[in-house]
Every structure is written in structure tokens, then in C-alpha cells.
Amino acid sequence: MATTTAPPAPPVVRTRCATVSLPAEMCVVGAVRHFVSDLLNQWGVAHDDQDTAALIVDELAANSAQHGRATMAVNLSLDDDSLLIEVADSGEPARSSPLPAIADDEHGRGLGIVDVLTEWSETHQGQSGWQTRTCLHLAPLLPDNGGAETDSGQPWGGSSTSSEASVCT
């Protein structure tokens, strides 16, 4: 008598997404960084990867606030081994004047830092503003917090099941 076995089920990939939209102003960059840190902690991302993602978002949000338009949106998409980070600005062009260049200035290094920390990144200018997308490969996720709230007491994002291998492809 022959035995038959069912083919193995495809792996279940936890996919989570969240977006926050704020004025593109330097005073909100810290709030965006804290949002990302709290969210990734709730999603079970390893602490080193949380720190790296927060630095990436900090650099991209600061660029948006300094060079972008009136509003910025930060979108995060997480699967089991990748985090896609998108920062886009839109609205009316900013009315601020650029900062003067200073010798040994710390400005102008943000996208270089992002390039070093990520698998890939791309920046596009469209009619509504700039968009930068980047992918960070992650250490294995920590056990799912089951929708627990973050340290700030705010529940962030939902989860869904997907059969895609990676959000970064």
C-alpha cells in the first residue's frame, strides 16, 4: 500500500505595515524616530536593527524636513527578514532658504549613511515631491508580541499573512 503525503505548506510570512504623516519640519524628526523605535519594538525587531532603522529614518526625515515640501510621510513594511522604509514629502514647496555651507560641516552625509546601512536605496523626484525607499535586512524577529502596545501606550499597525518572500524585492 502506497502512502501519500501532502506537500509542505508554504512558509507563512508575517507582513506588517504602518504609515505616519507629519509636517516636514525639523522639530518632528525626533517624534518620527521615536515612533519607529516603538513600532519596531512592538513588532519584535531585534534591538540592533531597531537602532539602525531609527537612524535611517532620522536621516531621511531630516532630509525631508530640510529640503522637502510641506508634509512628509514615513511608511514601514516589515516581513520576516526585511524592512522597507519609505520617506516622501509632498505639498507646497518649502519656503525656507538653504543653510550656508560651512567647512567641516556635518550636513550632506545622510544619504551616504543610509547607503552604507542598507541593502539598497533609491531616491526619486516627482511632481509632488521627493521619495526615498530603502531596504534593511533584519536579524530573525523576536517572538510576536501579539498586538501588544508599545512603551508609549499606542497600538501600532496590524499584521497580515502573505506568501511573498520579501518586501524588499
Score class of each variant (00 low, 15 high):
7 P>D: 14
8 P>L: 12
9 A>Q: 13
10 P>R: 00
11 P>T: 08
16 R>P: 01
17 C>K: 02
17 C>Q: 14
22 L>V: 12
23 P>H: 12
26 M>A: 09
31 A>F: 06
31 A>K: 07
36 V>F: 12
37 S>K: 13
38 D>H: 14
45 V>Y: 14
47 H>R: 15
48 D>R: 14
51 D>H: 10
54 A>V: 12
57 V>I: 05
57 V>K: 03
59 E>Q: 11
60 L>M: 14
61 A>T: 15
62 A>G: 13
62 A>P: 08
67 H>L: 10
72 M>W: 02
73 A>K: 08
73 A>P: 04
73 A>G: 12
74 V>H: 02
75 N>P: 00
76 L>I: 08
77 S>T: 15
81 D>G: 12
81 D>S: 11
84 L>S: 00
84 L>V: 00
87 V>T: 01
87 V>S: 00
91 G>Y: 08
94 A>V: 04
99 L>K: 08
99 L>H: 08
99 L>E: 09
100 P>L: 02
103 A>S: 03
105 D>E: 03
106 E>Y: 06
107 H>T: 00
108 G>D: 03
109 R>H: 11
110 G>D: 07
118 T>E: 05
123 T>S: 15
126 G>R: 05
128 S>G: 10
128 S>N: 15
129 G>M: 07
130 W>K: 11
130 W>G: 04
134 T>L: 10
134 T>I: 12
135 C>A: 15
135 C>H: 11
137 H>T: 13
137 H>I: 01
139 A>L: 15
141 L>V: 03
145 N>A: 09
149 E>I: 04
151 D>H: 05
157 G>S: 10
157 G>I: 05
158 G>H: 10
161 T>N: 06
162 S>I: 06
163 S>L: 15
